[in-house]
Nucleic acid binder design. Structure first.
Lengths: 353, 353
DNA sequence: TCCCGAAGTTCGATTTAAATG
DNA sequence: GCATTTAAATCGAACTTCGGG
């Protein structure tokens, strides 16, 4: 083989002795293929294989206006939360023969907009936004509503109903976390809440309060601290560390700690250990998310698992439906899915009883 | 705005009162644009903006045979090693206005081949293969050599010279790891080597032996164990755990342990802790890679850092050069880059002196 | 010759409308 | 009218060629 000489449909036509029209009909099993006799089909297929014909997707896309591509925008790749969600997205797209274009917004508005522009220019057929740590206010909808590209956000819900969403039931999860500690006999419990600007923070806190009310646990405001805002996902580790240090210094005793997320929990465990408090012997710790590292930590972390892979798959399901709707000119309104989290008990919590 | 009415170059031509040729020349600043008077340009640009003209990339690609897209194939996304490499790739591609199509091979040959086919069909202009945990024998070159798509592998070197590579200097890294322990006074050292089929394993071991020789350290074969082969990146944690458990049971004393990689080290630390051996008080542990979790671990892990983000960026640099070479019909041979790792000292190692 | 602009062709596949026996 | 096949138009941009001033 000398050079990259492209084999076109016309070459196949010439080789097989039929016109390019017929070749196209046969190779695509178009409706008209019904009328084409088997021998003709066979000859065309043989010719195509012999020449190693591969249709030019540029030409096909130009004609069909389809890219078979989905844009995936991640707020910040370095967040360990992304990994499994991406896996779920990738795997489900693969099954539908779509390919993902991955973009990492670095939590910067300008970058978000530039990427959005690039993706729309490429006519991605759908958009999946993984808003895992996004403080940037996004008015995707302004650009998106008119572009009729099915869009779904993971981890964040938009007030508009032009954008679908897949989120975890934060309230339920936090509720389960506290219930777990309560069932182990813990009563003096410290809390590291999320940054105020994150919707998750409020939702999880609501779950905490709801269980506290049910069970009569007393929430001591001096044991409740908030993570500062930050655009860097790793910062919650450091913040968790510092806040826990301060909680310990306060000398107000607690036997358990509920962290906003796993990274925060890691920071907390580090701080506790440094202060000579062993986890779980002296203090139990619960996280949220169940990132990969949680199972590997020493001690392994009890946490509330978000079904990340399933969430990714669900998001793809939603937009694929949306794509089909667009193709069939059906109207579809946004879908909002709230997934159930799951308590995963590991070594970082322990019974006082 | 009602519908998705595409604005074509002809619409701009009509609006501005010039032909589509002129519009094309102006909007692309083609060489001929030199001859076009400023007022004409201005009117065309104004018309384009007014109509919100965006060139159709399908048409452009069909004509130019360029996709401005790069295929990225990852052996297994769930490997924490991927994250930063991908970040480096993404960031550097962004600067060159390329977009990545991300595919996750799941360490399966069939999937690799299917994805490769899909990427080539889409005429990606280059291919980046992140072979982070790939046991599948890849004869990419068979398909690739003839397709003249610049290709680079990260973390693995191919014998052929049609495929470039970016790898870390494993020998140097392992050498530094042992040197570090030696300088802290450790002499009885256990080793968990990598799976035999991984080239890295042999290279790192060579580094160990070379320092042992230099310094006169005695390598006790009863303290040397090997990770089994596996296609699952997380398995090295479990294997690290089990092997360390056995090492401890053996009752053959050691004051430090060199793990094949960070995940293995995490497993080892878990096992040591479970046996009542504290890290680093009773045993120092060194990893390799410096994945994100290493800094967050308790204790934080001393390890050999691979410059992952830089490696991703370097890989992109290589293929972008390759792309330019292809465009200019220059010949370029494969480039093989070996990056220097860096010892990162944290809490998991401690001086005996 | 220099400057400006337009008509027409090309990229490769799909599809409509139509022709053949 | 039916089964079978195809010429020609189309998708949108870019480039080649040419003509007029």
């Amino acid at each position: 083989m000398v050079k990259n000489k492209m084999v076109t449909i016309r070459d196949v036509a010439k080789e097989s002795g039929f016109s390019s029209t017929t070749v196209s009909i046969v190779l695509n099993s178009a409706p008209l293929a019904r009328y084409i006799p088997a021998p003709t089909k066979k000859r065309i297929e043989r010719a195509a294989k012999k020449l190693g014909y591969r249709p030019n997707l540029f030409a096909r896309s130009l004609r069909s206006q389809r890219s078979h591509t989905v844009g995936v925008m991640v707020a910040d790749m370095t967040d360990p939360y992304c990994t499994l969600v991406l896996r779920g997205i990738e795997n489900t797209l693969f099954q539908s023969s779509f390919l993902p274009i991955l973009t990492d917004v670095h939590n910067e508005r300008a970058r978000f907009e530039r990427y959005l522009e690039m993706l729309l220019d490429r006519r991605v057929e759908a958009l999946i936004v993984l808003a895992n740590w996004l403080f940037v206010d996004i008015d995707v909808l302004a650009d998106l509503a008119k572009s009729s590209v099915p869009t779904v956000m993971i981890m964040r819900e938009l007030q508009t109903d032009s954008v679908s969403s897949v989120i975890v039931d934060n309230e339920l999860g936090a509720h389960a976390a506290l219930e777990h500690l309560h069932s182990l006999g813990h009563r003096k419990i410290a809390f590291i809440r999320g940054p105020k600007t994150l919707a998750d923070s409020a939702q999880r806190w609501r779950g905490i309060r709801s269980f506290a009310k049910e069970s009569g646990i007393d929430l001591d405001s001096r044991l409740i601290v908030d993570l500062p805002e930050s655009r860097d996902p790793i910062s919650s580790f450091e913040a968790g560390y510092k806040l826990t240090e301060e909680l310990v210094k306060q000398k107000r005793p607690f036997t358990a700690l509920v962290a906003f997320d796993d990274q925060t929990a890691f920071g907390a465990i580090r701080a506790l250990t440094k202060s000579g408090l062993r986890v779980p012997e002296h203090c139990s710790v619960v996280g949220f998310d169940d990132v990969a590292a949680s199972a590997l930590y020493t001690p392994s972390l009890t946490t509330i698992r978000q079904p990340m892979e399933v969430m990714g798959a669900t998001a793809v399901g939603i937009v694929v439906d949306g794509i089909n709707a667009v193709l069939e000119k059906r109207e579809v309104s946004a879908i909002h899915r709230k997934m159930a989290p799951e308590l995963v008990v590991r070594e970082s919590t322990r019974s006082l009883l």
